[in-house]
Amino acid sequence: MNDTRDTTARWRKSTYSGKADACVELAGTTHAVGVRDSKNPEADPITLTRPAFTRLVRGLRS
C-alpha cells in the first residue's frame, strides 16, 4: 500500500506539535494512514491500514 506517496496527499501535523520541529505528520487515504517524519518528508512514510492505525493510537493513549 503505497498510496500515501501520492503528491496530492494532504499531510498534517498534530495540533499538539505547536511549532516544534521534531514531530510526525499524518495523511489519510481511502484505505490507509501514512505517518512520516516532518523533518524528512521525502523519505518513505510508514503506511498502516486504518484498523492498524486505530489500534496504534489506542495503544499510545492507554
Rank of each mutant, 00 (worst) to 15 (best):
59 G>N: 06
34 G>M: 03
49 T>F: 03
35 V>R: 00
48 L>A: 04
21 D>M: 07
53 F>Q: 06
60 L>D: 09
61 R>L: 01
2 N>D: 07
24 V>K: 08
16 Y>W: 08
4 T>Q: 08
21 D>S: 13
57 V>R: 10
1 M>W: 10
40 N>H: 14
45 P>L: 07
27 A>F: 07
24 V>H: 06
58 R>D: 11
15 T>L: 01
51 P>R: 01
39 K>C: 01
46 I>R: 04
31 H>G: 10
28 G>M: 11
56 L>D: 02
3 D>I: 07
12 R>M: 05
20 A>G: 12
56 L>W: 02
41 P>W: 08
37 D>E: 00
40 N>F: 11
49 T>C: 03
17 S>E: 04
36 R>I: 03
8 T>I: 15
19 K>H: 15
25 E>I: 12
47 T>W: 12
62 S>Q: 13
31 H>D: 09
9 A>C: 13
41 P>E: 09
38 S>M: 02
57 V>C: 11
26 L>P: 00
7 T>D: 10
44 D>R: 14
24 V>R: 08
62 S>A: 14
47 T>S: 13
3 D>F: 10
51 P>W: 04
26 L>E: 01
52 A>M: 05
60 L>P: 13
62 S>N: 15
26 L>G: 02
52 A>R: 03
54 T>Q: 13
8 T>P: 13
25 E>P: 10
6 D>V: 14
44 D>K: 15
22 A>M: 06
11 W>E: 06
40 N>K: 15
52 A>C: 01
5 R>D: 05
47 T>Y: 09
6 D>P: 14
17 S>Y: 02
61 R>Y: 01
25 E>N: 07
52 A>Y: 06
13 K>M: 04
15 T>F: 01
18 G>M: 02
62 S>R: 14
35 V>P: 00
45 P>M: 05
15 T>H: 06
24 V>P: 06
54 T>F: 07
33 V>D: 02
56 L>I: 06
57 V>K: 11
57 V>Q: 07
28 G>W: 10
15 T>K: 00
38 S>P: 03
43 A>P: 04
43 A>H: 10
25 E>T: 12
45 P>H: 07
19 K>R: 15
1 M>Q: 08
13 K>W: 02
11 W>R: 10
1 M>G: 13
47 T>A: 12
22 A>V: 09
16 Y>T: 10
51 P>Q: 00
26 L>C: 02
35 V>H: 04
62 S>K: 14
11 W>K: 11
16 Y>M: 10
20 A>T: 11
28 G>I: 09
35 V>D: 00
42 E>H: 12
35 V>N: 00
56 L>N: 01
57 V>L: 12
5 R>C: 04
24 V>A: 03
56 L>A: 05
10 R>C: 05
56 L>T: 07
52 A>V: 04
22 A>I: 03
55 R>I: 09
61 R>F: 01
16 Y>L: 12
48 L>N: 07
43 A>I: 10
34 G>R: 04
1 M>R: 12
48 L>Q: 06
62 S>L: 11
49 T>Y: 06
33 V>M: 04
7 T>E: 14
35 V>E: 01
38 S>F: 05
